[in-house]
Write a protein that binds this DNA or RNA. Sequence first.
DNA 1: CGCCAGGTGCGAA
DNA 2: TTCGCACCTGGC
Length: 274
Amino acid sequence: MTIKLNNYFDLDSTITCGQIFRYDIEEDNSYTVILPDRVINVKKVNDELIVESSNNDNLEEVVLEYFDLKEDYESINKEILKKDNSIKDIIEFSKGLKIINEPRFEAIISYMLSTNNSVPNIKSALDHISKRYGKKVLFRGKEYYLFPDRKDLMNASTTDLREVKCGFRDQYIYDLIHSELDVDSIENMTTKDAIDYLTSYKGIGIKVASCILLFSYKKRDVFPVDTWVKKYMKDKYNLEGINNINDYIYEKYAEYSGVVLQYIFNYNRNKEVK
DNA sequence: CGCCAGGTGCGAA
DNA sequence: TTCGCACCTGGC
C-alpha cells in the first residue's frame, strides 16, 4: 500500500539513528522492520511511503502510529526554535526525524539489555530471544521472528535467558517478567512517577527509564543522558555531572528535551555524510 | 591478551 | 550522597 506524506519525513534517519535495533536495510534501500504483530518493508519515494506487510490489518494506522506521523512536528520545531534559536541549523538538518513509538514490553527489555552493552550485542540478544520465544513469520521469502509477549517469556528460566545472550542481566529480566509491573499503568503517570516506578526495578536506572519513556510512552520531557550526551555536554559547554546536565537541558527545552536531544544526536552523527 | 560498549547495583567512605 | 568497581558477551 502507499501512504501519502503531508510533511517532512526522513525515513533513513528515523530508522537508523539508534532508536530501534531490529531492522534490516535491503538492497533497494528499503527497510524491513519487525513490529509486534507483523513484519513490514518500507521505502520512501518522493512524498510517498510504500509499505508492504506480512499482515495488512489496519496497516495504514499502524504505520502512522509507529513512525509518529500523526504528530505535528512542524509546531514542535517552531516551539523549540522559540526556546533556543541557536540550534536553527540542527533543526533544519534534522527536520523529518520522528521519534518512533516502540512496543512497550519490547522497549523495556531492549533498553535493559543496553546496559554496558554494544548495539550489535543488544540486537543479537533480541534476535535470540525472538527466535526462541517469538512467533515465526514468513515475509518476502525470508523468516522473521516477532518479539515475544511477556506471557511467552513466563517460563524462561534465568539459565534460558543466559543462553539467549542476556548476560548478567538475566536475573533482572527474569525478576521483571515475574514482577507486579503493570506496563500499561505507566501511560497515565507523571514523568517523575514513571521514572520512580521504572527505576524501582533492578536493571533499570535513570538512563534506561528515560529511553523507555521517550521511545515507548511519548514522554518528550525525558531525555537519556548516555556516554555520548555526557561527552557532548563536556566538549561543548564544559558541563559535567548527570544532575547538572539534566538541569541544563530541561531548563532550556522543557517538554521538548527528548526531541531536541535526538535532533542533536542525529546532526552530529550524520552531518559529515550528507 | 586487555579494553570497551547507548549503565547499573553494591558496598565503602 | 558520592565514589569506585565488577559485570555477560563479542569485536578489535
